[in-house]
């Protein structure tokens, strides 16, 4: 039960500010928490991480443990991590690390301390920022408006069957696959079946949020050899319930919608740039004038929107 948004620019620009606007217009759809997935200019080596610790009093020991695990995997911090703290108990961090020997193994070990600290995104360019509160609140706290990038996702959450916690917010990173994030509007009715199955296959879930499942589900299918398009199409059969979700990767944004066409998605392409949102009024924040609007209203549809000039821009 949420509002979602996507944005693609023709060249690196103020994608953060745009996503904040898109989500601000949809605040009534869910003010429990807000999150953004922003694809900045990709690094040639190393990964940028975003994460959250649950007790700011433990920040130093958390980071020590975190760094220890990194080193065990042949990696280390490339820059001093930065932190955002507030009155809330949790804190957020951003770190840049050199390549671990095996990313999946590292994150599995790093997840051993998820009761204290969570890595919420990892990629050459992906950064996920999420927190409780409205779009403006989260944007102010984390400086989202100043983030530069090529594309990204936004999400406003009205919690359904899981708790209102800063880490249960969207977007979700499809751990352990770098640079993959999803936002989802709706709810999954065979969540526990899939979660259990994927869990048995070794995937780790950090929340009880059904949307996290989609991220891992799609990435798993792709690791089994499906293309993104095939995975999106398959999800319509395999995942039950109500959903319109967008999955972003380095080179684009994919989208799928359930078989009963319950949740809308409105898209505008203009001058090579793209804005998508649950409600048309959100897109109007970016394109106040009338433009050609595409309503993805039908059942069982998928689409992939590429980020055209990305490599050139980078």
């Amino acid at each position: 039960m949420c509002g979602i948004a996507g944005r693609i620019l023709t060249a690196p620009g103020r994608v953060g500010a745009d996503l904040v606007d898109l989500m601000d217009a949809q605040e009534h759809r869910g003010a429990d928490s807000t999150g953004f997935a922003i694809y900045g200019i990709p690094r040639d080596e190393g990964f940028v991480l975003r994460g959250m610790g649950f007790d700011k009093a433990r920040l130093s020991p958390d980071m020590e443990d975190f760094r220890l695990i990194l080193r065990e995997h042949g990696s280390d911090l490339l820059e001093e991590p930065t932190f955002v703290t507030s009155d809330a108990r949790h804190y957020s961090f951003r770190a840049v690390i050199s390549e671990p020997n095996d990313l999946a193994r590292w994150i599995r070990d790093a997840d051993a301390i998820t009761d204290r600290l969570e890595v919420q995104s990892c990629g050459r360019s992906l950064e996920i920022i999420k927190d409780t509160g409205s779009s403006a609140e989260v944007a102010d706290k984390h400086g989202v408006r100043d983030m530069i990038g090529t594309h990204g996702l936004g999400h406003a959450r009205l919690a359904t069957e899981s708790s209102v916690l800063p880490n249960a917010s969207h977007p979700f990173w499809a751990r352990p696959f770098p640079d993959t994030a999803i936002v989802h509007n709706g709810q999954i009715t065979n969540y526990y079946t899939w979660r259990d199955r994927l869990h048995r296959l070794g995937y780790r879930f950090l929340t009880q949020n059904d949307s996290e499942l989609i991220a891992v589900w799609v990435s798993h299918e792709m690791s089994e050899g499906l293309t993104l398009e095939q995975a999106l199409k398959k999800s319509i059969k395999d995942i039950d319930g109500v959903f319109t979700y967008m999955i972003a990767r380095e080179d684009g944004i994919g989208f799928a919608k359930d078989r009963y066409a319950m949740k809308p998605l409105v898209v505008v392409w203009q001058d090579g740039a793209f804005a998508a949102a649950t409600e048309e009024q959100a897109v109007r924040r970016i394109y106040p004038g009338e433009s050609e609007v595409i309503n993805y209203d039908g059942p069982s549809i998928t689409e992939i929107w590429g980020v055209g000039n990305r490599s050139m821009a980078a």
Binding site: M1, G30, N185
Partner: peptide, 12 residues
């Protein structure tokens, strides 16, 4: 309306 998010608009 199809869900609580749209319900907010409907209530208005």
């Amino acid at each position: 309306f199809l869900g609580a998010d749209d319900l907010a608009v409907k209530l208005e």
